[in-house]
C-alpha cells in the first residue's frame, strides 16, 4: 500500500453572489495516495472544478472556503501564508486544464514560455532551462522539439498543445498533477495518446494525479480510486474496481446506466435519470438527489445523509445504505 499524499475532509466552498449563496462544494471528502490516480466524476456543475481550485486555493473573490481541511503531506493548506502558497502551487502541483489555451499565452513562443516557467520555480540558468524544455518536449513525443520551441501555440493542434502543457508539468517534477478534463476537447485517438503519456510519466516520477472527467471510460482506464460528486457533495468514494463491481449510491447507478456502451444492443432504451440537478442555493436541506431518486423514502426529504464508510475504503452518502439497510439496485422501494 502506498502512503497518503492528499487528504480532503468535509470541504465546503461557497460562492457569495448577488442572487444568493451558491453551495458549489458542500461536503467533499477523499484521500489520494502517492503515485495513484483518483478520478472525480459527476454532472456538469456538480463542483468538480471548484474542488480542484479549492485545493490550490485559486478561487475568484466571491468564492470562499467556509469549512473543511486540506492536508498535503502533513501541511494544512488552508493555513499557508501567501509565500508558502505560491511555493506549494509552483513546486508541488501542476495543473492541466481542458483548454490548453488557458495555460499558454498566444503571443509568446512555446520555448520562451517553458523557459520562463522553469526559471520561476527552479534555480537554473536560462540555458539549462532551455535544455530541460527540449528534453521534456521530446519526452512527451513532440517531433523536432528544438524546432517546436520556436512555434507559437496557434501553430500546434489541440493535442500537441496539451502535450506542451504536460511537458511543462514534467519539468517541475510535481508531486501531484491536477488534470481538469484534460482530454475532453480531443479526439479519441489523441485522447488515448495523451492519457497513456500521463500514465508513463506517473510511473516514472511517482506522481499522484487528480483526474477530473465526465467520462467513466477514462476513469476505468486511468484511476485507482474514484469519487462521485452530486450537487457539491461526495456521494460515493471507492477503489475503481469496487465502484464498478458494486456501486452503492443510486446516483452512481443512474450514471452507470445512462452511459451508452459499445457492447449495447443497437437502439435499446437507455436508462436516463429523469429531471435535472437542483439549484445550488437551495441544497443541503435533505438528500440533494431526492427529487430524482427512484429509491427515495420519507427521511430522504428531511435529513442530509452522512458520508459513511460501509466497507473498508468504500464510502457512500445515502440514507438507505448503512448498517441498518442495504439497498439493492433495481429493487425500487421494496420495503414500502
Amino acid at each position: 500500500m502506498s502512503d497518503n499524499l492528499l487528504t480532503v475532509k468535509n470541504l465546503k466552498t461557497y460562492f457569495f453572489t448577488a442572487s444568493g449563496v451558491s453551495k458549489a462544494v458542500d461536503g467533499v471528502s477523499f484521500a489520494l495516495n502517492k503515485g495513484e490516480t483518483m478520478g472525480i466524476v459527476g454532472e456538469s456543475g456538480s463542483g468538480k472544478s471548484v474542488t480542484a481550485s479549492s485545493i490550490i486555493r485559486l478561487l475568484p473573490k466571491i468564492g470562499k472556503i467556509v469549512e473543511g481541511e486540506i492536508n498535503f503531506e502533513g501541511r494544512q493548506i488552508l493555513d499557508l501564508n501567501k509565500k508558502e502558497l505560491l511555493n506549494f502551487r509552483g513546486k508541488d502541483i501542476a495543473v492541466i486544464f481542458q483548454d490548453p489555451m488557458t495555460s499558454l499565452d498566444p503571443v509568446f513562443k512555446i520555448g520562451s514560455q517553458m523557459v520562463e516557467m522553469i526559471c520561476a520555480h527552479q534555480d537554473v540558468s536560462k540555458e539549462e532551462a532551455r535544455k530541460m524544455a527540449v528534453e521534456a518536449l521530446k519526452k512527451v513525443g513532440i517531433p523536432q522539439p528544438e524546432k517546436r520551441m520556436d512555434s507559437y501555440p496557434y501553430e500546434l493542434s489541440g493535442g500537441m498543445c496539451q502535450r506542451v502543457i504536460i511537458a511543462m508539468a514534467v519539468c517541475c517534477k510535481p508531486k501531484m498533477i491536477i488534470a481538469d478534463e484534460p482530454t475532453t476537447a480531443l479526439d479519441v485517438t489523441v485522447q488515448a495518446q495523451v492519457l497513456e503519456l500521463l500514465q508513463e510519466l506517473q510511473d516514472e516520477m511517482d506522481t499522484s494525479i487528480l483526474l477530473i472527467t465526465h467520462n467513466l471510460g477514462v476513469v476505468w482506464k486511468m484511476c485507482d480510486t474514484v469519487m462521485v460528486m452530486y450537487a457539491g457533495k461526495t456521494v460515493e468514494y471507492a477503489r475503481s474496481e469496487r465502484l464498478y463491481e458494486k456501486p452503492l449510491h443510486p446516483y452512481t447507478w443512474g450514471l452507470l446506466d445512462s452511459m451508452p456502451k459499445l457492447s449495447d444492443t443497437v437502439k435499446g432504451e437507455l436508462k436516463a435519470i429523469p429531471g435535472v440537478p437542483p439549484d445550488l442555493r437551495l441544497t443541503g436541506q435533505c438528500c440533494n438527489f431526492y427529487n430524482r431518486c427512484p429509491y427515495a423514502t420519507e427521511i430522504c426529504s428531511k435529513e442530509v445523509p452522512p458520508l459513511l464508510e460501509v466497507e473498508e475504503g468504500h464510502f457512500v452518502a445515502c440514507h438507505r445504505q448503512n448498517q441498518q439497510e442495504k439497498l439493492v439496485r433495481g429493487e425500487v422501494n421494496a420495503n414500502e
Binding site: V188, T189, Q191, A192, Q193, E196, N215, L216, G217, V218, W220, K221, S240, E241, Y244, K261, L262, S263
Partner: peptide
Amino acid sequence: ALLSAIPPESPFDKRERIV
C-alpha cells in the same frame, strides 16, 4: 484503430491499442 482508442467499458477491460 479508432475502436481500439475508445476508453474501456470497465476497469478489467484492458484492450490493446492499435497506434
